[in-house]
Design a binder for these strands. Structure first.
Length: 809
DNA sequence: AGCACGCCGACT
DNA sequence: GTCGGCGTGCTC
């Protein structure tokens, strides 16, 4: 009996979301292992797909003939036992396909590209061959995919055996290789060769000396050329004469940002801890020593030195021979933290940067996998880093919603971190100045251990926060984005050569355009959203689907020229700053100015070096920045998030204001903060102004309790969409009925309702939100719902299930 | 996903 | 009659 393997194939659909059994050919029996990639035939024809071995020798009740595995794609498993198990849990937990969960955990390079190549057979008439193929021996089906008639013609020819299709799987996981040299002679032999040289053969003489110095080591040819100053021709001569051999060796690609290690020596040594920090480090380190899967909530005000606590805990994990994983919300926005980790731990650190190329990311991943990197820093997906022997996991800014992936698999890095913490008996540290209500509530219940850092390390008080009521301001001074008080303070900073940060949570120039004559608002043709004017590109853009069109000069509805633009974005404010403070140098930082690779770092570096007076940006500038010369933070409009139909709107506003306020007065200069708002009495703004997390927490918890929202209840969102609104509505009503039958009476079903943005990318969306405390049947019911939408009558219907949704738009 | 089969209306 | 559109079902 041949050996069997269970394989998850790269076909992400509900019907194929299960292991398929294959025969293991005898020659692979000793090589195959769980977690390896394989190439298998799947479906009609000889179509090859990539798959992952998830089991060996499990019995199958499949009645048909089992096909054999075509080939192994790896010599070693790409998923170790932990990650394989995690992928299964992840799929189950997020209602995602197993294959999607696996790919989410691996670098993109490990997803083989499949190609379909069409080739003529001898029975294809010459004239037709000439017409279809020209002089080419084959053609890639992908290149004609946009011409349906050509495709169907080719498929018909295939049925008639006039052409054949070959399936090619091309693995992109290529290690980079470089040319290297290695001496083949020993010292005496090299000396003998030297005797035979002509007196004027200086270059060859030098090469011999060099070979003697490197003995039998392998050296990259580029390195050898650089150190000796000899040309590649001389090395070729050396090969001919049998002195050395050339070979290709694997090298890691050097990401540019990676190559320069920070040389700030003061960052390399552990800093002196204050009492609060010491107490925190002591507890965390004790857990690391004891190999406890304890979760700590490290609640520290901005500037309280959380990073140093992380670093000393990482050092502890390494001392005990274990590895450490640290997540940050968005790596390009927090280069300062990353630099500190690299400075402290050097080349043992791997950074999983979101802007690494496919190859670079693969190299970093392999460095980790091979155990060459013992500390990993990265954003959300770094939680899947293939570290073994994990001793410590850190989530910095644990409240950040970017830790939740907003596409399938919709996982929260915090939940994955808990899973890995339990699996590895690793200590987990959740750090934040403004913990999520969920985490803080767990800390109150004793599920997490609460550690506090209530004081700033520089002993500076938190910056005073002034709130400006923009309603009053406009009454007295007319429409403006800048209050008198903010302008004064900005002028002040300019005079004192100090820097300011201004935040406006909206990009573009104007957020919508309206005709004064007929009231027409220009909307996106694909979405239920008004278009934003961008002067940079001279277009109207949709921020949801990317649609762009020219700026109209006449109303598209009535032809009137009376078009007005309303709402303010960062582009407009940048202009206003140039007019109001012509001497100020402004850097604007938003999605539009940082789209290009490396722009984040560049703009932040410029600001850090004092090449600008004002950093103007969207919320991306709120996190982690630490510029000692910044003494003023201004929030132009604190209300943008408050009106949203989302139970977390207040929490997010409070977090954002607290975070951005913390950017002021980081070093020895006192900072101050000014918040402009139309809702000066809103509790989120009041508590942020008072730096009162505790007060906010109590108030918000009461509201959540009253409305049965997290952390008192769990939520899950079911969303269905279809190009036809009536179909979407009908489907979601059907799902609602199915759910009602299966849920406990204690669970609350909200909806179905149209989603707040009802139409997006030409599809209509309806949603149901379930609030529940404990409902053992829910999980299975949701899976059945997904299953039910696979049947007929659900054509072109998309259903997604989001456990613990972060947004409801 | 990608393919085939089978059922319908519209053509050489 | 047959071509090709689309809905449906299956892939170890």
């Amino acid at each position: 009996m041949a050996q069997l393997a269970q394989v998850i194939v790269d076909v992400p659909t509900m019907q194929t979301n299960q292991p398929y059994s294959y025969q293991v050919p005898p020659e692979l029996e000793n090589l195959i292992q769980k977690g390896m990639r394989v190439s298998v035939p799947f479906g009609k024809g000889s179509r090859q797909v990539q798959g992952f071995v998830v089991g060996l020798d499990q019995p199958t009740d499949y009645q048909g003939e089992l096909k054999p595995i075509s080939a192994l794609m790896d010599l070693q498993p790409v998923l170790n036992p932990e990650l394989l198990e995690l992928s299964h849990w992840l799929a189950d937990h997020t209602y995602a396909f197993w294959i999607s969960s696996i790919y989410t955990m691996l670098p993109n390079a490990l997803k083989a590209k499949s190609k379909r190549l069409v080739m003529p057979t001898t029975s294809l008439p010459d004239d037709e061959r000439q017409q279809l193929f020209g002089d080419q021996p084959m053609l890639d089906l992908a290149t004609v995919q946009d011409q349906p008639t050509v495709v169907s013609h080719l498929l018909r020819l295939r049925r008639q055996h006039q052409v054949k299709i070959e399936y090619q799987l091309t693995d992109r996981a290529r290690a980079k290789t470089m040319l290297a040299i290695r001496p083949v002679l020993n010292f005496e032999q090299l000396e003998n060769e030297r005797q035979l040289l002509k007196a004027n053969a200086h270059a060859q003489n030098a090469l011999l000396s060099y070979l003697e110095t490197i003995q039998n080591k392998t050296v990259l040819q580029t390195t050898a050329e650089q150190t000796t100053g000899l040309s590649s021709a001389i090395f070729n001569t050396g090969v001919k004469k049998g002195w050395l051999e050339k070979l290709s060796v694997e090298v890691y690609r050097q990401p540019q940002s990676q190559s320069q290690l920070p040389d700030d020596h003061h960052l390399q040594k552990p800093l002196q801890l204050n009492d609060d920090q010491s107490a925190a480090v002591k507890q965390i380190n004790h857990s690391i020593d004891q190999q406890e899967a304890t979760t700590y909530l490290l609640e520290g005000v901005t500037g309280s030195g959380k990073t140093e606590v992380y670093l000393q805990s990482i050092a502890k994990a390494l001392e005990t021979g274990r590895t450490a994983l640290m997540l940050v919300p968005e790596i390009s926005l927090t280069p300062q933290i990353v630099n500190r980790v690299k400075a402290r731990f050097g080349s043992t650190v791997a950074v999983l940067h979101s802007s690494l190329s496919v190859g670079e990311r693969y190299d970093e991943w392999r460095r980790i996998e091979r155990g060459e990197a013992k500390v990993v820093v990265g954003a959300r997906s770094a939680i899947f880093a293939p570290l073994t022997n994990l001793g410590l996991i850190i989530l910095d800014e644990e409240h950040e919603s970017s830790y939740k992936q907003d596409e399938s698999p919709r996982y929260h890095a915090r939940e994955v971190a808990k899973w890995r913490s339990r699996y590895n008996h690793a200590t987990l540290v959740l750090g934040s100045a403004t913990p999520s209500l969920e985490s803080r509530a767990r800390a109150m219940k004793g599920v997490y251990q609460l550690l506090r850092l209530p004081h700033r390390v520089n002993k500076q008080p938190l910056p005073p926060i002034q709130v400006v009521d923009m309603r009053e301001e406009i009454k007295q001074r007319g429409e403006s984005n800048f209050s008198a008080s903010l302008l004064n303070k900005l002028n002040d900073r300019l005079a004192r050569h100090e820097q300011s940060i201004l935040m406006l949570n909206r990009r573009g120039f104007s957020s919508f355009m309206m005709c004064r004559d007929c009231g027409q608002v220009l909307k996106c043709p694909n979405c239920d959203i008004s278009l934003t004017m961008h002067l940079d590109s001279h277009t109207m853009k949709c921020h949801y689907c990317g649609h762009e069109e020219p700026i109209p000069y006449r109303c598209p509805n009535c032809g009137s020229r009376e078009i007005r633009y309303y709402g303010t974005g960062t582009e407009k404010v940048e202009r206003e700053l140039n007019q109001l403070l012509p001497q100020a140098r402004v850097i604007r930082m938003d999605v539009d100015t940082t789209r290009r690779k490396g722009m984040h770092e560049k703009l932040l570096r410029q600001f850090g070096q004092g090449q600008a007076d004002i950093l103007l940006g969207t919320q991306m500038i709120a996190k982690g920045l630490d510029f000692p010369n910044v003494t003023l933070v201004g929030v132009l409009n604190a209300d943008t998030g408050l009106g949203l139909p989302d139970f977390r709107a207040s929490e997010r506003t409070f977090d954002l204001l607290s975070q951005v306020s913390g950017r002021a007065g980081r070093a020895n200069k006192q900072g101050e903060v000014l918040i402009q708002t139309f809702n000066p009495d809103h509790y989120a703004i009041r508590y942020a102004q008072a730096n009162d997390y505790e007060g906010f927490f109590k108030r918000e918890m009461a509201l959540r309790h009253q409305a049965s929202y997290p952390p008192y209840y769990y939520t899950v969102r079911i969303m269905a969409s279809h190009p036809d609104e009536a179909v979407a509505a009908r489907v979601v009503t059907r799902l609602h009925q199915l759910l009602q039958k299966r849920l406990l009476p204690s669970s609350i079903i909200l909806g179905p309702t149209p989603r707040p943005i009802a139409r997006m990318k030409r599809r209509y969306y309806y949603q149901i939100v379930i609030k529940y405390k404990r409902d053992p049947g829910l999980h299975a019911a949701l899976f059945d719902i997904l299953q039910s939408t696979q049947s007929r009558g659900f054509n072109d219907v998309q259903v997604s299930i989001d456990p613990d949704p972060q947004y409801f738009m």
